[in-house]
Design a protein around this nucleic acid. Sequence first.
RNA 1: GUGGGUAUAGCUCAGCUGGUUAGAGCGCCUGGUUGUGGUCCAGGAGGUCGCGGGUUCGAACCCCGUUACUCACCCCA
Length: 419
Amino acid sequence: MEPLRAPTGTHDLMPGASARWVALLGVFASLAEQSGFGLIHTPLFEDVRLFRRGVGTETEVVGKEMYEFTDRGGRAMALRPEGTASVVRAFIQHHPIPPFRAWYATPTFRYERPQAGRYRQHHQVGVEVLGVADADVDVEVLALATDYLQGLGLSGYTLRLNSLGDGACRPQYVAALREYLTTNKSSLCDEHQEKISLNPLRILDCKDARCKAVAVGAPTMNEALCDDCAEHFARVREGLDAQNIAYFLDAKLVRGLDYYTRTTFEVTLDLGEGELTILGGGRYDGLVEVLGGAPTPGIGFGSGIERVLLACDQQGVFEVEPKTPLAYIVDTTDGSHARDIVAMLRKQGLFVERAYANRSMKSQFKTADRSGARFALVVGDREAANGTVTIRDLRGGGDQVVVPRDTLFSSLQELVAKN
RNA sequence: GUGGGUAUAGCUCAGCUGGUUAGAGCGCCUGGUUGUGGUCCAGGAGGUCGCGGGUUCGAACCCCGUUACUCACCCCA
């Protein structure tokens, strides 16, 4: 039989390496919580219609990459391909009092060919705010995004900002764009010559040189914004300026999910060859209604944990070492002392480890050293007979003191306090 | 879906134009007498050379297929 392994495009996060994830989630959670967001957990799988309607059938994410299955009851289900739709569904289902602010950390699933920074199961942290149309909340969300990236120590990224308009002005713009593209149809790349009617906005985002050339002369959404959208966008930019949050106005910025309106953004990082998007989001004022709720504005972002850590690697920041034990118990009698001392010190709140299986003192010391522990606590025949423990400092010069077993905890505290 | 690269010990990799018992470093285990780690020394365990065919007297090495990993395109976090 073939050896079993993690499915293509998925990875095991092993102890040791996971210390960095724990730290990252800590940074994100504390920033989100202090901005009034509470953790939300929704099911990893949902009725497939949620994503079809919410994210859009024409999108790659839903049309080509979704993990769909039929459950034993014959229901059509799908693994979550992105974070927002489920949160909105939960909002509609539970009627929380707006403004509703939730943060999440979740796996997301897309059936793609894996490569650097792209997986079939990847993980995102993100936030959503529902029930506030005020542009100031856009600024709050953007500030949280940049605070998060900065909090990890990242720099040199670009916040790309655009407004996609709303129901009042976008249809007219799309019509104008479609007309322009149709005029220049023969200059587009092969694929997009066919797709003009489907989603003309995407063509602006195409990397083909021919499409890029056509895009240069295309009408921009920014010029076509209605008064309300223009005012909203101006207020957002004003807020960003007030907080010295740098951004780059990118009239060609289009996102891969259909629900976005007005403020739309991405954070990208130059990797020498090509760019990596590490965070993306925006406003989706029509989504709640599309999913069957009362008209409610919303905004949020998601950020890929793997990609963010890739960026951290590249910049040499946010290196997190696993915690090491304060003490490691070496017991050359029958292990009973190690058993009892470990239990006692852990109850006191200390991180302590021990050796097992009655190995030689030499090998127990070796594992003690490798564990990174500050102290070795030795119980051999002498200590066992006298009711004492020998404390050896493994990080300094190897100083040893013998202390009564009863006062072990306070003796350790004194030693720690000394330096 | 398309294209490139790689596949040898737990990890990182050697293995010359095909030649006999497949190696190194790190890691792991044991020991270097009388209770002590980090350095050093000695010994040891551990490999169907991804898998299946083929060529050959002989294949880790050459050919075909296949799978996996990886990188890029598309798209995206």
